[in-house]
């Protein structure tokens, strides 16, 4: 794809040497980034895969993907991942927006106190064992809540969200107040609709961290049927705990297919929210 667009650049008028050099640089960068991913992709289709400098499948097979969608022990973790990511992103966004909205109420008594309550958690943490004991006393271990809830509160994201809300003109707020809106009403009717970009951006950040979560699952979940895709992926990549013993696939093929499958959701989602995303982060972190 990169090469065709480069040709397109060349057709433009007023083409300077710099633009060509620039395009070449980015084609090079893209190749450097894509090469390892391409190799993984190729190996996931290559029945003979193993080592070697081949960049095209030597013996093409889509068996690994067929296996992934037809076998419960492969697609179930995938569905769990989706469930956790969706719920977690929702919880995370809810907490971040609520918290952020309260933190921009400058004249609210105790606002600064509350923001320092949040800041303090970025510095000190009790560590894994005390956290585990708390989770166990709440009877959350071995439920998906144990992986959803602790990551739902993310102060870094909350701060980004707050910065974004600051950018919303206060006059809108005032107008709504005069119209007799309750704070909740303003929040849902004025603030949230204006923050789609930030919601997309921070939502994506939450989604990435939920999707890639491994540590929490390892600690809190002992029930095999609640493992997520990253757990499965890691046990396949690190421990080669592969669910098949036949000659049609080499271990590598399935491992590589799993790596690609783990990336697919974001490859699909990302282009859709790229614009929102860039805009959202822009407004949230930079403009004041």
């Amino acid at each position: 794809m990169a090469q065709t667009t480069a040709v397109y650049v060349k057709k433009k008028r007023k083409l300077k040497p710099f633009d060509i050099v620039n395009a070449i640089i980015f084609i090079a960068i893209s190749i450097v980034i894509l090469l390892p991913i391409w190799k993984v992709l190729v190996d996931s289709f290559d029945a003979t895969s193993g080592y070697g400098l081949s960049f095209l499948p030597r013996k093409f097979t889509a068996e690994a993907y067929r296996m992934a969608i037809s076998r419960a022990d492969l697609y179930r973790p995938f569905l769990i991942s989706i469930l956790v990511t969706a719920t977690g992103t929702f919880v995370g966004l809810m907490l971040s927006t609520l918290g952020a909205y309260v933190l921009i109420q400058w004249e609210m008594p105790g606002r600064n106190f509350l923001s320092y309550v949040l800041l303090f958690t970025m510095l000190f943490s009790g560590g894994m064992i005390p956290t585990y004991i708390v989770m166990m006393n709440l009877h959350l271990t071995n439920t998906l809540w144990s992986v959803i809830l602790p990551m739902g509160i993310n102060v870094y994201n909350l701060v980004l969200m707050r910065n974004f809300f600051e950018g919303i003109p206060a006059s809108l707020d005032e107008a709504a107040k005069i119209d007799g809106c309750t704070p909740m009403g303003i929040f849902f009717k004025v603030v949230l609709p204006l923050s789609k970009a930030a919601l997309a951006a921070i939502g994506l950040m939450f989604a990435v961290s939920y999707w890639n979560d491994y540590t929490n699952f390892k600690i809190y979940i002992t029930n095999n049927s609640l493992f997520n895709f990253q757990m499965k992926l890691r046990s396949m990549v690190m421990d080669s705990d592969l669910p098949m013993d036949d000659g049609s696939l080499s271990p590598n093929t399935l491992q590589n297919a799993a790596i690609i499958i783990a990336m697919i959701p974001f490859m699909i989602i990302y282009p859709f929210c790229q614009d929102y995303f860039v805009q959202g982060v822009n407004v949230g972190a930079v403009k004041e």
Partner: peptide, 24 residues
């Protein structure tokens, strides 16, 4: 009402951040 809105955040922070801190 804003305190009420902040309540969930506070509950989360207390349970998942501050309670474990006693482990220090």
């Amino acid at each position: 009402w804003f305190y009420l809105m902040f309540l969930p955040v506070l509950v989360f922070v207390i349970i998942f951040n501050y309670l474990p801190m006693t482990g220090l």
